[in-house]
Design a binder for these strands. Structure first.
Lengths: 330, 330
DNA sequence: ATGAAAGCGCTAACAA
DNA sequence: TTGTTAGCGCTTTCAT
């Protein structure tokens, strides 16, 4: 009780416990070569003095902070908060803090985020990179343990967690076909490095014998406004389309709205299937039929895979299975 | 080009520029006592070697990282991503990284977040604290520059940014009255430390002469499900209520759904006004009449106020004005 | 205007 | 099993 608000250091603990500071370090970091009795005593002293190790000093030695980075294009896009929630919970459970970098899917911002992450000495990074190329991603993966989401691995050292887009797309298109829609169109998000959904769509349509599938894809920004515009373009070009598959729910919602504005109703004259199953999807009228991906689980898994990597395991590659949720719009 | 991936340190720069390392430090930190010529030369060398100062080493000296913390109850609640977006953008513009702590409005989690923030040596913190009491908040504010959102200042050292709930509530209730709704009820969020909306509601109703206003408030968790349940309770207790004001849009949406399930339609038999104007509000059917608060601007302002504090200015207190957005539900 | 010395708090390597 | 020695890269005195 000598007062003052000076920091309690490892030396204070060592002195109070009657050991060297190395022993304190061993006790708190669960290193071996320490007797159980000493360990207990030191831990008790730490508790008593309310000692908190300096993250800076520790980082200086280890070159690794207790922090992981989360890179995403736009936290305001409803898909990402759900994922982020899973990331936060899983990270907190492991005593890791999460630094979020918002990039707007801009290549410069993604690169800058990578630099900031490395400079900050983050223990690892989780990223939804949409603009950076594989070479840049591989380079980042060499400087720091990295897990990329929803994208093929650019490199053996980079782990991945993906949702099975092909399966999801087949689910969506299969459903539309089974409901009797012979002519399908796709509203694609103008998102680089994400060709899977479009490819799967073309594949399914090709197999089903629909003529000229590629001409039935319209790309636009993956937003509500983008979806409305894309739907108008699609129908202007191909008035016979009655089944619409959207890259994500935001686009699908825009499509439903554009239909309503044109006096048509999704689920009746024309069917719309979204992707992601964001919270909003179930609350709309008509509620949106969509491919559900477990976003919270995706976030959790990203952290789990990163944690394995931090523990020295090789890069894993996991895939999450989507499922179709049939509601009113298709 | 001697190779290796060893870190470029301040000494490397000093050597290359032919100066001492404090001169390098002076140059990069814009301290005085350095000739313009030297400064330029050092900066050029820094550029050339792609030198990035170690955050750890710097933090060790200064006890301050280039990181700010953002504490919020639930990133998956649509209000917060919109605010977070403003925080991220404003922080990035100032070269600050943002560490996000999700608390679920739990007192233990909020306290733990505070501890983690201090331990990490964050430069400052921005928080939506819903469970922590004023004493704990004031204590945190003494250890680190702190800005609290949507809550009265617990202490002279703590800055605040708030939306004017009283004004918003008056707007909402005034609108309901002007539409001829004589009997109003409120769906309150069961959120500690947020009595303003309820208080303003009681005040307005008291002034308008409605009997027993307090009995017309039903509290529940601020979610869609909570809103549906609260609405059923409210109408069971007071079947004569025709105007409903909700603590937030999630509650309001739940209320609209409960009405639909009961064969009634918001905006016709009964009016519902929400609060926040989350993205979803405009997309629903009927679209939600709600009190709009500029969430992005709130985030931006929180960072601005924190930045002023970091620059040594006294704690500020700002208020953002809400406005009513009239749509179909009321 | 510049440089030399000191030390922030911790952990890795080695010695005892 | 424990302690000692060194030093991570930076900024802050203080001297020049």
């Amino acid at each position: 009780m000598t007062g003052g608000s000076v920091r309690v250091t490892i030396d204070d603990v060592a002195r109070a416990a009657g050991v060297s500071r190395q022993t304190v370090s061993r006790a708190m970091n669960d290193k071996g070569d320490i007797s159980e009795a000493t360990r207990r005593r030191v831990l008790a002293t730490i508790e008593e003095l309310d000692y908190r190790p300096s993250a800076f000093a520790r980082g200086m030695r280890t070159q690794r902070a207790g922090t992981v980075a989360l890179v995403l294009p736009d936290i305001a896009n409803p898909f990402f908060p759900a994922v982020a929630r899973g990331v936060f919970d899983a990270a907190a459970a492991r005593g890791l803090s999460v630094v979020v970098h918002n990039t707007d899917a801009d290549a410069g911002a993604e690169a800058e985020a990578g630099r900031a992450i490395v400079d900050a000495g983050a223990a690892g990074a989780i990223g939804f990179f949409e603009a950076l190329d594989d070479a840049a991603l591989a380079a980042l993966g060499r400087r720091i343990p990295l897990v990329v989401a929803d994208r093929p691995a650019p490199d053996g050292a980079v782990a991945t967690v993906r949702t099975d887009f092909r399966a999801g797309t087949r689910l969506a298109c299969g459903h539309l076909s089974s409901r009797g829609h012979a002519r399908l169109g796709m509203l694609d998000g103008a998102v680089q490095n994400k060709p899977e959904r479009r490819r799967a769509f073309l594949e399914v349509l090709g197999a089903a014998g629909q003529p000229d599938p590629a001409d039935h894809v319209v790309a636009g920004p993956p937003t509500v406004a983008g979806g409305a515009a894309a739907l108008r373009h699609l129908l202007a070009r191909h008035p016979g389309v009655t089944g619409v598959f959207a890259f994500n729910d935001l686009l699908a919602i825009g499509a439903v709205q554009a239909l309503r504005a044109a006096g048509r109703r999704a689920g009746e004259q024309i069917a719309v299937v979204g992707y992601d199953d964001i919270t909003m999807a179930a609350l709309l009228d008509p509620p949106l039929t969509t491919v559900h991906t477990d976003k919270y689980e995706l976030g959790r898994t990203l952290v789990e895979v990163l944690a394995h990597r931090l523990d020295g395991h090789p890069a894993e590659h996991r895939t999450l299975a989507p499922r179709l949720v049939i509601r009113g719009s298709a």
